[in-house]
């Protein structure tokens, strides 16, 4: 029984690890997608460091357990147990030292990565875009030709007539040229400053390729800034349970070149 346990455990460990290492199976990619943001490589780097460290711990501890159980299986009746060399002390010391060092490193380096993304102000030239989440869609708003966002009035929200944000064009001139669209279109290599807010419950803004994830909390205006480094079309999905349509709540992120973006924005302004 002990041998079987050891073998099964070691097979489980090796297979589990192998899938992490090979992670591409007939078009099913079980790994992070391409990184399309300026800060993403630092997140990926931090993730890989953690992956190596904890992967090593995982494999070593499971194999150790498997081996010890294997060894324990054919010992004779009346066996006198052996104490692990040094007893509990090496366990405690190695746990404190090895794990301690690992977590110190991870917290110092990781905190810096975190701080550089979420604790820094956006660049002054960043393109401001207003993002509103609601059951169960995202809408995006650009300031339009006047460079000013119209004020939001919750009582004016009327989704059936396309007033998703609650603008008041009758009285508010700044609101008249606001561009409201259902996809987030941004220029590549330019800092973007999103202002996230929700009109009903908590939603979340998650773009895998940007390594960006932020809850959108009603009552709060949450700034989020990033720079996309690759053109392409990516999915923005909601990750915070928001009701029955949660799984269908998404939008597309289109990263265009600056020229394409300018043209797109001009077309949109004309269409509003």
């Amino acid at each position: 029984m002990g041998k079987a346990f050891g073998v099964v455990l070691i097979i489980i460990t090796l297979v589990s690890t192998a899938v992490f290492i090979f992670h591409d199976f007939h078009g099913i990619s079980l790994w992070l997608p391409v990184d399309a943001s300026a800060h993403g490589h630092r997140v990926d780097h931090q993730l890989m460091e953690t992956m190596y460290g904890s992967g090593l711990l995982f494999v070593l501890s499971q194999i150790m357990l498997g081996l010890f159980v294997w060894q324990a299986s054919d010992r004779p009746e009346g066996w006198k147990y052996k104490i692990f060399p040094g007893g509990a002390k090496p366990m405690v010391i190695s746990a404190i030292l090895l794990v301690g060092i690992e977590i110190l490193t991870l917290s110092f380096v990781g905190s810096k990565v975190w701080a550089d993304i979420y604790l820094t102000p956006a660049a002054p030239e960043a393109l401001p875009i207003d993002v509103q989440a609601g059951q169960f869609a995202f809408y995006f708003r650009y300031a339009g030709a006047d460079g000013k966002f119209g004020a939001l009035h919750a009582e004016k929200i009327d989704e059936g007539s396309g007033n998703f944000f609650g603008l008041d064009p009758r009285n508010d001139v700044a609101a008249r040229d606001d561009v409201v669209v259902a996809s987030l279109v941004i220029p590549v290599n330019r800092p973007i400053l999103l202002t996230l807010h929700s009109k009903d419950v908590i939603h979340s803004f998650y773009v895998r390729e940007l390594r960006i994830h932020q809850d959108i909390v009603p009552g709060l205006m949450i700034p989020l800034h990033f720079t996309a480094t690759q053109t392409g079309r990516f999915e923005i999905v909601c990750t915070q349970l928001c009701g029955l349509g949660h799984y269908q709540m998404k939008a597309y992120l289109e990263v265009k070149t600056q020229e394409e973006f300018d043209k797109w924005l001009k077309d949109q302004e004309a269409a509003q």
Partner: peptide
């Protein structure tokens, strides 16, 4: 327990959160 190492770090958790 091992996967806790990932989720304990905000920079990585932002990617893995709610997955």
């Amino acid at each position: 327990g091992i996967s806790g190492f990932f989720l304990a770090q905000p920079s990585i958790d932002t990617y893995l959160h709610a997955t």
